[in-house]
C-alpha cells in the first residue's frame, strides 16, 4: 500500500494545473469567450487527456481511474470550461462495449435527473439530457437487450445551456433517431455498467474536490483583501472557522475520492461501485456546504452574477447530481451493507 501519486501522476497533475492556470476563466466576464475557449480546447486536445480511458490492445484502458481523476480535479479547481467528463465517459462506454473509438465531440446522455445513463426503448430519443455537451455532435446512450444493453447514439441539437456555466447540457430532441453503434460493438453487461458508473462517480467526486479547493482559495483570497472595522475580514474568527471547516471537508473528500478512483479498475465491479458511492455521498454533501461558505464569505458581492463563487456552486450542483447525488449514493451504501429500515424503507 502506497497511496502517494506516482511521479507520472504528479507530472500529469502539474501539467493540468498549468493549462488551467493559463487558460481557464478567471472572471465571470471571461466565460463564453470563444477565442480563449478554443485555445483551452486545443491545449486539452494536445495533452491527450480525452484518450485516457480509450482501449489499448486487449481492451484494457490506457490509464487507470486515477489519471483522469487527477485531471478532473484540476479542471474543477480552475472552472475549466472545456469538455472532459462527457468525452471521457463516452470513451469508457465504447471501450467496455469493444466498439471503435468515437471522436472527442461525443458525450453521454443521462436521464433527466442525471442519475443514470439514458435508455431508449423505441428507436427515438427518450427524455434525456446530454451533459458536458459544448461542441458535442452526438451522445451515447443504451438500448436494453435482454439481460444486457447495446450501445447507441443520438445526434444532438445545438442549444447548450443549463445550470453549470462552464459545462452546458443539451436536452435531447424527442424526434431524433437512436441508432445502434456499429459493429464490432458488443453487449454492455451489468458489470460493465457498474464499472462505468464507478468511473463516472469517481470523476465527479474529483471534480467536486477541485471545486472545493478553488472555492476555498477564492474565498480565502477575498478574506485577506476585504477590510471591515479596520481589519481584514479573514482575521475574524467566525470567518476563519468557516473557511477552516471548508478546507477540512475538502481534504476528507480528497482522501475518499482517491480510493474511489483507484478502485475503478483495481476492485471487482460491485466493490468499485460501492467505493464510488461512499465517496460521492461524502463529497456531494461536503461540496454544497463549501460552495455556500464561499458565497457567505463574499457577503453582498457573493450574491452577484459577477462573482465566481456561484459559478463554483453551479458546477458543484451539476457534478453532485451526475450518476447519483448524496442521498442516492447513501441509499446505495445502505443496500450494499444490507441495512434496511421498517417496511423496507431506506
Amino acid at each position: 500500500m502506497d497511496v502517494r501519486l506516482s511521479q507520472e501522476q504528479q507530472a500529469l497533475r502539474d501539467s493540468a494545473a498549468q493549462v488551467v492556470d493559463r487558460l481557464a476563466p478567471r472572471a465571470v466576464g471571461q466565460i463564453g469567450d470563444a477565442a480563449r475557449m478554443a485555445t483551452l480546447d486545443a491545449a486539452v486536445a494536445a495533452s491527450g487527456w480525452w484518450e485516457l480511458r480509450t482501449a489499448v490492445d486487449g481492451g484494457d484502458s490506457l490509464a487507470s481511474g486515477v489519471e483522469p481523476a487527477v485531471v478532473a480535479e484540476e479542471l474543477g479547481r480552475g472552472l475549466a470550461d472545456t469538455p472532459f467528463l462527457g468525452p471521457t465517459l463516452a470513451a469508457e462506454l465504447r471501450r467496455l462495449a469493444g466498439a471503435a473509438p468515437g471522436d472527442v465531440t461525443e458525450t453521454v446522455a443521462l436521464d433527466p435527473a442525471l442519475s443514470s445513463l439514458a435508455r431508449a426503448f423505441d428507436g427515438t430519443s427518450p427524455a434525456a439530457v446530454a451533459i458536458d455537451a459544448r461542441g458535442s455532435a452526438q451522445a451515447l446512450l443504451l438500448v436494453p437487450d435482454g439481460e444486457c444493453h447495446r450501445l447507441a447514439r443520438v445526434e444532438l441539437p445545438a442549444a447548450p445551456g443549463g445550470l453549470d456555466l462552464t459545462r452546458p447540457s443539451v436536452v435531447l430532441d424527442p424526434s431524433s433517431d437512436v441508432v445502434l453503434v456499429d459493429e464490432p460493438a458488443g453487449p454492455i453487461t451489468a458489470d460493465d455498467l457498474a464499472r462505468w458508473t464507478a468511473l463516472g462517480l469517481a470523476l465527479t467526486c474529483a471534480d467536486l474536490v477541485g471545486i472545493m479547493r478553488g472555492a476555498v482559495d477564492l474565498a480565502s483570497a477575498y478574506a485577506t483583501e476585504r477590510r471591515q472595522y479596520g481589519a481584514a475580514i479573514g482575521s475574524f474568527q467566525a470567518v476563519q472557522h468557516m473557511l477552516a471547516d471548508a478546507f477540512v471537508a475538502m481534504e476528507g473528500s480528497r482522501s475518499i475520492t482517491l480510493h474511489a478512483a483507484w478502485a475503478v479498475d483495481a476492485l471487482a465491479a460491485p466493490e468499485a461501485l460501492t467505493a464510488a458511492t461512499l465517496a460521492k455521498a461524502y463529497c456531494a454533501r461536503a461540496a454544497t456546504s463549501v460552495c455556500e461558505t464561499a458565497i457567505q464569505v463574499h457577503g453582498g458581492i457573493g450574491n452577484t452574477w459577477e462573482c465566481l463563487a456561484h459559478v463554483y456552486l453551479r458546477r458543484s450542483l451539476l457534478s453532485s447530481d451526475v450518476l447519483g447525488n448524496a442521498g442516492a449514493s447513501l441509499m446505495h451504501v445502505l443496500v450494499h451493507h444490507d441495512l434496511e429500515a421498517a417496511d423496507g424503507l431506506r
Partner: peptide, 16 residues
C-alpha cells in the same frame, strides 16, 4: 483551536 490553526497556518489568514 484546531480551526484557528488551520486558518492561520494552512490558509494563511491574517491574525486577529
Amino acid at each position: 483551536i484546531q480551526r484557528n490553526l488551520v486558518a492561520r497556518r494552512i490558509l494563511g489568514l491574517p491574525a486577529s
